[in-house]
Nucleic acid binder design. Structure first.
Length: 432
DNA sequence: TCTGGGGTCCTAGGACCC
DNA sequence: TCTGGGGTCCTAGGACCC
């Protein structure tokens, strides 16, 4: 319920096949043609254009398993280009923000809007206007679902995408419309119900969202706990999830990568871990946060058939909490020494910082008795500031610490499109 | 040959305290 | 002989999301 007593109305705006659509915006020859985008390391398919979906290419399929199919149908394949997608995302979000009073950016390609005060207008028409505006400003096609709860808006959005009859905008406001939509939604397609839970629900004879909405609340609470109970309430029209207008402080920041090949040497792992640690430190400074805990992990491939799985991880406290690259790289190196074992074929490593506290807070807990230099000391802080400024101006990696190395363990990225919107040298030239 | 990365929330169980 | 109970903090693990 909003303040003036109106029922809430949420819109979920979701970009269609976002990464594939981004690639097509700057390459019009690809319109109407199958396009896929690969995960980091060119491993799995993580985005597909409609034409690629029609070929039966499944989400998450390893590229090597459908290489023949991709070749046969002349599918255009891209490595993922996050600078491009991030920039396109912010263009979409900026456009959206001008179209509704409140916006919650939920992910790189989705946003919730508060449409409560628009209920008296023709929402179907307004949704159409939003779609056209975003298309015109950014080139990205979107689908829009609107309903009295976030979970129902998600379901509406799914129908808008799936069923051409909605022309990209599905409004669920009457009880009858909501009921019909729930009957058309499989239980595994409900937002928040994943593989494990949908399997358990089906064992109990619950196959659709309508079945789930009608299931005994006590049973749901017992087996799916409070999260499931909330989803059920939302499906029944009781709004539990509110708009989150300010992004909450992150609780942890992780940088990890699979390697393009097996790594055996400790020195190479040190370079990788130092690079990830520096990236974490950079993200911390961008978030204006200090980390009080540091975790490093190294592992072999989870797909290794001979069962020689090795997973080494350790967490230490960072005292005082810090965002300094040098301090974090050093500590990460110490942890790596303690978890490294000679022998395993390492395929992945990562650095995670947690226990984050704001660096703008007055009360950063400092140790009472310590000879350690504060991570916030003038010199360290200003070096980091200068480094970030140089890298922001001249491009990522222009200055880096000697421990970082980008070569030997670098992931595969063979089919990268240019950073059309974020790098001067990649800008498109148009000839008349 | 070749299988992503970065997050969140919740629960259960143990340690510890009063 | 009898052997509490509740709160908090931490960690590990499970489930989910995009």
């Amino acid at each position: 319920m909003t303040l003036d007593g109106e029922l809430p109305m949420f819109a979920l705006v979701d970009c269609n096949n976002f990464y594939a659509s981004c690639e097509r915006v700057f390459n019009p020859l690809l319109q109407g043609r199958p396009v896929v985008v690969l995960s980091n390391n060119d491993g799995c398919i993580i985005a597909r254009s409609e034409e690629a979906k029609a070929l039966g290419i499944r989400m998450g399929t390893p590229e090597f398993k459908c290489r023949e199919l991709l070749r046969q149908h002349n599918v255009t394949v891209f490595s993922s280009n996050y600078p491009l997608y991030g920039d396109m995302s912010s263009r979409v979000m900026t456009t959206l923000a001008a179209l509704a009073p409140e916006i919650e950016v939920y992910s790189i390609d989705e946003a919730f809007l508060d449409m409560s005060s628009f209920r008296r207008y023709n929402l179907q028409e307004y949704g159409g206007l939003m779609r056209r505006t975003i298309r015109q400003h950014t080139g990205i096609p979107v689908s829009i679902g609107m309903a009295p709860t976030k979970t129902l808006a998600k379901a509406a959005n799914r129908l808008a995408k799936k069923d051409p009859h909605y022309q990209g905008v599905c409004i669920l406001s009457s009880d009858a419309d909501i009921r019909a939509a729930l009957e058309r939604t499989a239980v595994e397609d409900i937002w928040g119900i994943g593989r494990q839970w949908s399997a358990r629900l089906k064992l109990r004879g619950i196959y659709t969202a309508a079945d789930f909405a009608a299931a005994p609340a006590a049973w749901v609470q017992k087996h799916l706990h409070i999260v499931g109970a909330r989803i059920q309430a939302e499906l029944n029209g009781r709004s539990c999830l509110q708009m989150e207008l300010v992004r909450p402080q992150k609780q942890s920041i992780c940088t990890s990568r699979s390697f393009g090949r097996s790594v055996f040497l400790k020195e190479e792992l040190h370079q990788a871990v130092a690079t990830f640690a520096a990236k974490c430190a950079f993200k911390l400074r961008r978030e204006q946060a200090l980390a009080s805990m540091l975790t490093v992990f190294v592992s072999t491939s989870p797909f290794d058939a001979d069962g020689n799985r090795y997973w080494g991880t350790r967490t230490i406290a960072l005292r005082p909490p810090t965002q300094d690259s040098i301090a974090i790289i050093h500590a990460a190196g110490v942890i790596l020494d303690s978890v490294f074992q000679e022998g395993p074929a390492y395929k992945k490593a990562g650095v995670l910082v947690s226990g984050l506290v704001s660096d703008t807070m007055q009360a950063v807990p400092l140790p009472l008795f310590s000879d350690e230099e504060s991570a916030l000391d003038e010199r360290g802080g200003s070096i980091m500031r200068v480094m970030d400024a140089v890298n922001s101006h001249y491009g990522k990696g222009s200055i880096r610490l000697a421990a970082e190395n980008f070569e030997s363990w670098k992931p595969n990225q063979e089919r990268l499109s240019p950073c059309t919107t974020t790098r001067w040298s990649d800008i498109i030239s148009v000839r008349a």
